[in-house]
Simulated assay, not measured.
Amino acid sequence: MSPSLRGTGRQYWVAVRAMIVLTAVLGIAYPLVMTGIAQVVMPAQANGSLIKVDGQPIGSSLIGQSFTDGKGKPLPQWFQSRPSAAGTGYDANASSASNLGPNNPELTKEIQQRKTTIEKLDGADAASVPADAVTASGSGLDPHISPQYALLQVNAVADARGIEPAKVEKLVKSMIQGRDLGYLGQPTVNVLQLNLALSKMDPTGDEGRK
Rank of each mutant, 00 (worst) to 15 (best):
T135N: 15
G59E: 04
E164W: 09
R17C: 08
V21L: 15
P57D: 06
Y90E: 08
A197D: 02
A92K: 09
A97Y: 01
D54C: 02
A126M: 08
S49V: 12
K173C: 02
S4H: 10
I51T: 11
Q113W: 00
D142I: 03
Q56I: 12
S139T: 11
Y90L: 03
V33T: 11
R6T: 07
A86V: 03
E164S: 14
I176K: 05
W13V: 08
P187L: 01
V14M: 12
G7E: 09
S81F: 05
L107A: 12
P147A: 00
G123Y: 06
M1N: 09
V53A: 04
T8C: 08
K210C: 09
I28V: 15
Q65A: 02
A124H: 07
E207G: 06
P31R: 14
I28L: 14
L50W: 11
L107E: 11
E106D: 08
V53S: 06
L181M: 13
A18D: 12
L32M: 11
Q186K: 10
A160Q: 04
T117N: 12
Q177N: 07
A136E: 10
V189H: 04
Q56K: 15
L26N: 12
A86D: 09
L194W: 04
G59V: 02
N99W: 04
A133E: 08
I58C: 03
K73M: 14
K200V: 03
G59D: 05
R82W: 03
Y12T: 13
I118Y: 05
V14H: 08
Q112V: 09
P203T: 13
I28M: 10
N99T: 10
N99G: 07
A150D: 01
S49L: 10
E110V: 06
V40F: 11
T204F: 07
I111A: 07
Q56S: 09
P147W: 01
I111C: 06
P74V: 14
T117F: 08
L100H: 06
P57A: 12
Q113T: 08
P83R: 12
Y183V: 11
S61A: 15
E110C: 00
S128A: 15
P74G: 07
D122M: 13
V172T: 00
I28F: 09
G140N: 03
N99H: 11
V16T: 15
V134S: 05
A136D: 10
G140L: 03
P143Y: 09
Q186N: 04
T116E: 15
S128M: 09
A158Q: 10
V134T: 07
A197L: 01
A24T: 08
P57Y: 11
S139K: 04
Q80H: 04
M42W: 12
V40I: 15
A156E: 13
S61K: 11
I176F: 00
Q193Y: 01
A166K: 15
A38F: 03
K73R: 15
R114I: 03
D132Q: 12
N93S: 06
T8N: 08
A136S: 14
P31Q: 14
I58M: 08
G48Y: 03
A46E: 11
V53Q: 08
R114C: 03
D132M: 10
D132Y: 06
N93C: 02
R114Q: 11
K173G: 02
A15M: 07
I20D: 14
R161S: 07
M1T: 12
P76F: 04
Q113I: 00
G101W: 04
S96Y: 00
N195I: 03
G162Q: 05
I63D: 04
D202G: 13
T204K: 09
Q45A: 12
M34I: 15
